[in-house]
């Protein structure tokens, strides 16, 4: 090869990529690229506009706060009731994350098992689908009866809702490994385990992460819905119970404050999973690459 001088190692392929593509340094504001800011500012602008209109409408029409509280009142309630609400939020989030963790472990483990054995897949996948299509509201009461412990039941419900996207996406990902690469592994005498570890699992990563993004939100929804059904009270209650309670007492601003917390948690979970996905894929996957054309 043209390796006469060690420094002249750039192959002259005659293509435009002959020069090593550099990541073009875009100017940044507060550490974020300039082109990224509209993505933050535009939704904030719309949000402020809508909140302003809402506050204005509530005041103009003198809507009573037990029908529709204005955003300022909701904010005040959120601050005033922060003690109870944040404790409940923590309980809901704990169930959400435990359910998500269980969904990841069981989903990935089952997906790997299924790709190792077609028989297992044929035998078990239909049941996973049944779990997925059964409305969680309908089976939550049964689970609460069977599980006995309320926290465990909530966990199971949230898990059922969250685990299917991870399972089906990971199965798809494991089967999406390039056929020629599989042949290449075969040629070099790779064991099943090696093929799994070096080929199928990395190939499945983007799919798994797409599933994780969906499941993160679903786990939260599952936790909240299950608690609605359970309707338990006491010191160990999550946000759903706070909403029910406040609803009975016509403390509508508090309902809104709790709703706001759930929404913000959902958004935070989505952003966190998106960030994880971006960090893991940024070097190689199309979805995370910024194209310059």
């Amino acid at each position: 090869m043209s390796s006469a001088s060690p420094s002249a190692s750039v192959p002259h392929d005659g293509t435009d990529a002959e020069a090593r593509p550099l990541t073009l340094a875009e100017p940044t504001i507060l550490g974020l690229p300039v082109s990224f800011w509209p993505r933050i500012l535009a939704p904030i602008f719309v949000g402020i506009l809508v909140l302003g209109l809402w506050e204005f409408a509530v005041r103009w029409n003198e809507v009573p706060s037990y029908v529709l509280p204005g955003p300022l009142l909701v904010g005040q309630t959120l601050i005033a009731d922060w003690g109870t609400l944040s404790a409940s939020l923590w309980i809901t989030l704990r169930i959400t994350f435990m359910a998500l963790a269980a969904a990841v472990i069981v989903g990935v483990a089952l997906a790997v098992l299924f790709t190792q054995s077609k028989w297992l897949e044929m035998a078990l996948l239909p049941y996973a689908v049944i779990l997925q299509v059964t409305p969680i509201v309908a089976i939550a009461p049964l689970i609460i009866i069977w599980a006995g412990d309320i926290n465990l039941s909530l966990l199971i419900c949230a898990w059922i809702v969250a685990f299917f996207p991870i399972l089906s996406n990971t199965i798809l990902g494991l089967n999406s490994a390039d056929h020629n690469l599989i042949n290449f592994f075969q040629l070099h005498g790779a064991t099943r385990w090696q093929t799994l570890r070096y080929l199928k699992l990395p190939a499945a990563l983007p799919y798994f992460l797409a599933g994780l993004k969906i499941s993160g939100g679903l786990a939260l929804i599952g936790a909240v819905v299950a608690e609605f059904v359970a309707g338990t009270g006491g010191s160990e209650s999550g946000l759903a119970y706070r909403i029910l309670e406040a609803g009975y007492q016509l403390k509508i601003p508090r309902v809104f404050a709790a709703l706001l917390m759930i929404s913000l948690s959902g958004i935070a979970i989505f952003l966190a999973t998106s960030l994880i996905s971006h960090l893991l894929l940024r070097r190689w996957h199309e979805s995370a690459l910024k194209r310059e054309n």
Binding site: S3, D13, A17, R20, W284
Partner: peptide
């Protein structure tokens, strides 16, 4: 890699290489 003329590209990802370089 040096033998196929890609010394210095060890840490490049396939996405960052041209078609000819990937073939190398």
């Amino acid at each position: 890699l040096a033998l196929v003329g890609l010394k210095g590209f060890e840490t490049s990802y396939p996405r960052e290489l041209s078609g000819g370089m990937k073939m190398r």
